[in-house]
Design a protein around this nucleic acid. Sequence first.
DNA 1: CTTAAAAGTTAGATAAACCAAACTTTTTTA
DNA 2: TAAAAAAGTTTGGTTTATCTAACTTTTAAG
Lengths: 165, 165
Amino acid sequence: MKQKLSESLENYLEVILALEKTNKVARAKEIAEKLNLQQGSVTSALKNLAAKGYVNYKPYSFITLTDKGKKRAKDITYRHLAIKEFLLKVLRIDEQTAEETACRMEHAIDAETIDHLACFINFIFRCPRAGENWIQSFKSYCAAGNPGKNNCKQCIDELKTTAKG
Amino acid sequence: MKQKLSESLENYLEVILALEKTNKVARAKEIAEKLNLQQGSVTSALKNLAAKGYVNYKPYSFITLTDKGKKRAKDITYRHLAIKEFLLKVLRIDEQTAEETACRMEHAIDAETIDHLACFINFIFRCPRAGENWIQSFKSYCAAGNPGKNNCKQCIDELKTTAKG
DNA sequence: CTTAAAAGTTAGATAAACCAAACTTTTTTA
DNA sequence: TAAAAAAGTTTGGTTTATCTAACTTTTAAG
C-alpha cells in the first residue's frame, strides 16, 4: 500500500532524484534552488522525509534517496513524463505550459489512470488509424474552433493508400 | 486576469453551485456534508470567500454565489466534467476512479489545456478514423498489455467500408 | 593553519485549513 | 409561545509548509 505523501514532499523526492542523476548526490542548496524555497524549509522537509524513510539524511552532509525513496521518486517522475508527453505530443500544448501543467497534475493522477494514459499515447502512435497525421488533423480541427469543413472521405482514402504502400 | 484560488476554496464554490442548482440556495450544513468537513470550517471559508467577493454571505442565512463566484464555479465544474469525460469515455476508467481523479485534477489543469482536451474528446468522436470502435481497439490493446497481435490492415479495410456505407 | 565564505541548521513567526466543543441564533413543534 | 432541536458561529488548538534571521559547521584560500 503506497503511503500518502503531500504534493510538497513528492516534489522534494522528484528533484532529489534528478540531482542524484546529475551529481550522484543532492545538496540542500540545490534542492532549495530547484524548488524555489529557502534553505531552512529544505532542512525541515528533509528531516521529515528521513523520518518517513525516504531519504538518507545526516546533518551537514549530502542527501541520497533510500530504496523506498527512489522507488517513489521514479514513480512521480514517470507520472510527470507521461503527462507531459500527452500534453506535448497529443494535445499539442506548448513546451512551457506542458511542463508547468505536468508539474501540477502529476500529484493529482492515480496509478490506474496514468497507466491507461501511457497506454493510450502508445496506441495513438502505433495504430495506423491515428498517428502523427491524425494528430495534425486534430490540430487543424482544434485551431478552426471545431466546426471545420473536414473532408473525412478523402482522409480515409488517403489512409488506406498509405497503409498499403 | 483570473485570481488564484486554493484547491479548497475552489471546492467550496463548486459545491455551492451544485447546491444552488438543486435547491436555489446553499446552506452551510449541506456544504459541510458534501465536502466532508465540520460546520465550523465552512463558516470560516465562507467569510473568506465573501471577503474575496465570490459569495453572498450573511450570518445565519443561506448562501448564494455572486456573479464572479458563479463564473468561477462554472469554470471549475466545466473542468471537472471535461476531465471526467476524458477518463470515462476515452481512457475507459471506471466511474468511481474517474470521479475521484477528476476532483483532484480539476485544480491542476490550466485553461489552455482544458480547452485542448475538450476539443480532443470532440474530435475523437467526430473523426471517422477514431470514434467508438477505435476506442474499443484501444481497450483491447491496453488490456493485452500493449503488444497484441493487431490486424491493422483488416481494421483499415473495415473502416473504409463503414465510411462508405 | 587560520580565517573568510559558503552551506547548513535552528528558532521563532506566519498563513491556510482544518477540528472539537462551547455558545448563539433560528426553526420547529407540542 | 415556550422549550427542544437544528443550524450556524466562535474560540482555541493542531498540522503542514513556508519564511527570515541568527547561529553553527564545513570548505576553501591565502
